[in-house]
Design a protein around this nucleic acid. Structure first.
Lengths: 223, 223, 223, 223
DNA sequence: TATGAATGAGGGTTCATTCAT
DNA sequence: TATGAATGAACCCTCATTCAT
């Protein structure tokens, strides 16, 4: 007994996408390997050809989501000759849209960090899950957290840039960043695809909210 | 042979507090009845004398947390003769401090809503868990969600009040509310008790951020 | 759903006895928790109330078997005023009979040592199987091996005693001991309860074989 | 895309040797097809081009081991004009050295018989594993056990020969044989390649032990 | 021949829950 | 009230085996 019915062979990316979907809605613990497998027409056992364990699969999902998010934001931060306000507007927009449209990003941002932290390896008893696997996991997990901090830092730097520029009021850039990201990530919690507003609509309003808060009132400069 | 050594018998409140603690850090699925019981020096079986099921216990925690949050906020909203800006400042402050200081509130706000939504009762019908229990659960759960919407609405109404007043710019009160609450709830995700800033400090900055965003610039009125 | 039909509650000793039985015939890997549970009218899950894991259960079986074996042999070795030959005769007899009659002893002597050595802890992923459990296991396992060496040493000392006495020929006591124990333990491999010979019969012949080999021929002393 | 890099194609013998190695140290159940395959740089799937199943592979290992053992012993037994004592000495020596030096013999003698007895073929009938395969397995397995009995009998016959000769005391040849073989096989359990004694050393001592036990004391004949 | 992908059948283990005491 | 013992259901994971390539 083996083989798939007939359709194409499934690859890593498809599994990650499927897992991100399920994970986002059910959470790590409530998601079973069977749930994920079903989404790609496989059995749970088959997933183990592609990922060493459920933890590694979670890790892969989060990595993909975070990479996507960073890839979107990074070039904007790097742009020269662009006001911080405009950068921030674009960053917020791209991030919110990522959260609403890309399940992996949503998962990476919102819910499953705790599961990753709590992951109690080494997971397997007597199997082929050895010390190297454990080490790899820890390494990648730490790397994920570092990159996550880096992601947050992209926002913080832009806020600081604006303050130095004189575009923004002098605020605690760290807390303001957490405030913005909190609001943005939280979108992943309440957003409903078929609701009144699209991701772009929401982004537009949040940009307005935060830029209004940060910008130095232009009129007052004259006074 | 049984019963507890000598120290006081455990009551509902203690269990709820213990559960809130564990729940907040580990999440619903990762928390076992044994974990919770251990916190109050009981066995898992004993918890069933106080709560009909794990789901009911979760519900109780969330109800307590939400009640607490509402109790704090409600009187502020009700106050007459107080500018919306001031009301909002007080509301934000109280809520953030609740999230950072009260585990039940933290749990109710941040993480465990999904678990409540996914709760699939009753696990089995062979036992003493009957239709009435099921009905009660559904009723209380729905009531919880309604109250949660009510809680959110308290913020939204205040924003609207400010807009009508002329204190605040005309914004989409709904999205602004979600933005604020997202940022506030997210504090529960990243806050560390012994960090650089206290809950009050954080609250102070967030109040500044959001009021700056909402307020109609006074100076410009003159221009 | 719970409780046992009606009959008595099962205790550790019964489970160990049942496990020893199954283990001895099927070997560790081929024995499932379900097999063992079935022998005592329990489900596999119930075994976990009594033993932390399959490995711990194996350990318990081996400890009981070895303790039994040592308890039988030790007093004989300690006896003063008894010729080494007689001691050895009694020791061999008791040990062989233990092997044939007591499944735990049989298991401890013959087959499951390798399983114990290969036990790949920590076994459980995310469960309540923590570092302490791991440490306890390692400690008890090492202790088991030490006691096993001690058991072997009881035979070796007796052989040496006989050599010093002049009762026995000067031989390599270590290898002779291993020879004897190998032969004796091997009985557990081929012995069939309803065969031609009882454990006592076999013991009698082995005693004859080894004493003949060890004893200094009395007649020759005269020559 | 597949096939092995460039080095020679793997053949049955190599696989059997590799399997014997792994089997001897880990036991049948704890050995996976992947383990064996890895030893010869193949994948588990590839093993099925050489052996119909894991059971057949085990059988092959045991057959090879037993054949080797018999091939060594048989000519000695057949020799005319050689005292039984000398025959036995040579037989014991060759067998012990086989056990210590040849993993297949070690496996065949010591550990894996039980696995062979418990083999429950065929696992599933949906595949290409048909009735013929089943019959072949049973036939070869029975043949193996018969040859194993024959092997034991070679020793027993020599003992009997010595008794008839007058070289040996009248003993229960069957039990004495089992005693000797038990001791010899047990060497496979405790022998460590880099220990104090070589296989030949051990053999020397065991020969001494058993011949001393069996031989009619020469000096006493005179008395 | 060789292999990657897939799977059915378990196996060990956890856990919410029940019930007799 | 409290608990120890018990269990059904489910979960993660492994493994021998198959088959298309």
């Amino acid at each position: 007994m083996a083989r798939k019915p007939a359709d194409q062979s499934v690859n890593r990316e498809e599994i990650i996408a499927a897992a991100a979907d399920v994970l986002r809605y059910n959470g790590y613990d409530a998601t079973t390997m069977k749930d994920i497998a079903a989404k790609v027409n496989l059995t749970a056992a088959s997933l183990y050809h592609h990922f060493k364990s459920k933890d590694f699969l979670l890790l892969a999902v989060l990595e993909v989501g975070l990479d996507h998010a960073i890839a979107q934001i990074e070039p904007i931060v790097a742009a020269a000759d662009k006001p911080a306000a405009q950068k921030l507007a674009e960053m917020i927009t791209l991030h919110i849209v990522s959260v609403t449209d890309n399940t992996a990003v949503g998962a990476a941002m919102v819910f499953e960090i705790r599961a990753l932290m709590n992951a109690k390896l080494p997971p397997r008893n007597g199997g082929q899950f050895g010390q190297e696997d454990y080490d790899e996991f820890i390494k990648r997990r730490d790397s994920f957290f570092a990159r996550r901090a880096y992601f947050e830092n992209l926002f913080k730097r832009t806020v600081q840039e604006g303050i130095v520029n004189g575009e923004f009021r002098p605020v605690d850039a760290s807390i303001v960043t957490k405030t913005m990201l909190g609001a943005q990530n939280w979108v992943g919690v309440w957003f409903r695809p078929n609701g009144r507003l699209s991701g772009a609509d929401i982004a537009h309003m949040m940009v307005d909210t935060f830029l209004h808060s940060l910008r130095v009132p232009q009129g007052l400069n004259m006074a």
